[in-house]
Amino acid sequence: MEIRDRTPDDLDACTKALAEVQAGDRYPVDWPRDPAGWLTPDGLIGAWIAVEAEAVLGHVALTRDMEVTRLFVTPAARGSGLAARLLDTVRAAVETPLKLEVSSEGTAAIAFYERSGWRRVGSGRARWLNAAGEPALVYYYVSPPRSGEEQVG
């Protein structure tokens, strides 16, 4: 399996992978009108994909405010350490601490981030609605320190 920079030509395969994730996990909560646009948020500075036999198995993006976003792994590729490899790829691309937010409904994602050393630093309400039709509760996380660094915040 290869992890590489995402190109515009990859967006159709990324959308197909996202559809698999959304069908199983309801991520994103509501299917976007423009999935390729959703995968390319404002302020995007990088996006990476995991590919095997020309199929996209995972995706992650980074915005200019150092937020990790649009991280997903297809159901067939779960349990392989792929999400950790994608996060490591983002961390290797920048030297500053990273942040992310995750819905309180994403219990598997929360458990993964916390096992990986990410630290919850707050919570708030999102502009989008959760499964109950209410503004979603999201948790904010910061990346673990690199070797030799102190935890910030």
Rank of each mutant, 00 (worst) to 15 (best):
53 A>K: 11
91 R>L: 05
121 V>F: 08
47 A>W: 05
131 A>C: 11
146 R>H: 14
126 A>M: 13
99 K>Y: 14
70 R>I: 00
78 R>D: 01
32 P>H: 04
147 S>V: 12
104 S>T: 09
128 W>Y: 14
64 R>G: 09
26 R>G: 07
58 G>V: 06
103 S>T: 07
84 A>E: 05
27 Y>I: 14
95 E>H: 00
136 A>N: 03
73 V>D: 02
56 V>M: 06
112 F>V: 08
52 E>G: 00
10 D>S: 02
101 E>Q: 12
94 V>T: 08
129 L>F: 09
85 R>C: 05
46 G>V: 00
9 D>W: 07
132 A>N: 06
69 T>I: 15
92 A>S: 14
129 L>S: 12
103 S>H: 11
7 T>H: 11
67 E>T: 11
68 V>C: 01
66 M>S: 14
6 R>H: 00
38 W>L: 01
79 G>I: 12
16 K>I: 00
107 T>S: 06
5 D>H: 13
83 A>V: 12
137 L>G: 08
135 P>T: 13
86 L>R: 05
151 Q>W: 08
35 P>F: 05
122 G>F: 09
12 D>C: 10
143 S>V: 04
44 L>G: 02
79 G>Y: 07
5 D>Q: 10
153 G>Y: 09
121 V>G: 03
65 D>W: 15
59 H>L: 12
101 E>T: 14
62 L>V: 12
115 R>Y: 05
30 D>I: 06
105 E>S: 12
46 G>Q: 00
12 D>I: 07
11 L>Y: 06
50 A>D: 01
110 I>Y: 02
83 A>C: 10
94 V>H: 05
95 E>S: 08
148 G>M: 08
31 W>Q: 07
22 Q>Y: 11
47 A>V: 07
73 V>R: 01
30 D>A: 15
44 L>E: 05
28 P>C: 06
116 S>V: 11
149 E>C: 02
146 R>A: 15
98 L>T: 00
51 V>Y: 02
4 R>T: 04
148 G>T: 06
57 L>P: 01
10 D>Q: 02
75 P>H: 11
6 R>L: 11
28 P>V: 04
23 A>H: 08
98 L>V: 03
22 Q>F: 00
60 V>N: 03
98 L>W: 03
6 R>P: 03
